[in-house]
Design a protein around this nucleic acid. Sequence first.
DNA 1: ATGGTCGGTGGCCGA
Length: 263
Amino acid sequence: MRIATWNINSIRARIDRLTAWLARSDVDVVAIQETKIPDEKFPTERFTELGYQVAHHGTNQWNGVAVLSRVGLDDVQVGIPGLPTWGDPAVSEARSVSALCSGVRMWSLYVPNGRAIGDPHYDYKLQWLAAVRDYAAKQLVDQPDAQIAFCGDFNIAPTDDDIWSVDYYRNSTHVTPPERQAFSALVDAGFTDVVRPFTPGPGVYTYWDYTQLSFQKRRGMRIDFALASPALAGRVTGALIDREERKGKLPSDHAPVIVELED
DNA sequence: ATGGTCGGTGGCCGA
């Protein structure tokens, strides 16, 4: 089985690229972030006609996450208990959704950006990550053998090897100790970055800014991850970052990340 | 060369 995660940066702008990539990449389950579309406008048929079932969570033009699966999609869960809210305390942002796909609990996460150190969004990001960690840790206490994948855009570069320039990102979000600690806490809870052993750095990234010819100059960040529970990590036989998808006409600014699992 | 790149929106904001 093959699973993947991809910040698509608008499902409407990227629908043809995404369906072509699905046909070519042979992935069974995909976590998608930043669909930027409400549920009622999501192009579900474009995926069902390819054999994929869809669980989408989107409320407006911001955020939006989905799980696509051609190996079963059951027990859809929207949101995670304990996540902080932004703005209206009665409304949760559309940043997390999951489904059970052939025995794997597949999560699509879009971690808040943080914007700037000291910005209220930065504290929101840290609170959001703490809630995910607490939830993730509890899953393994309740079910140590569960196959769980927390996939998505974490908006954190865990080490200096994951950014093209330490100087460029000095005093920026994505690299601060509190953010890196929040990421490590998820790893310490038992969820392994299963891609890194197959894509060693430095200089290996999943995101390149649209401006300044960043991709062409190899100026990127590694901020998209598949974090696997012990039972799932034990099934991983390979992984890759599909840089080809960052090329060509109107690409997403993120590349897809693919993980191969033994059957 | 006083910009630089997208997407969604609506005549700017977020990434």
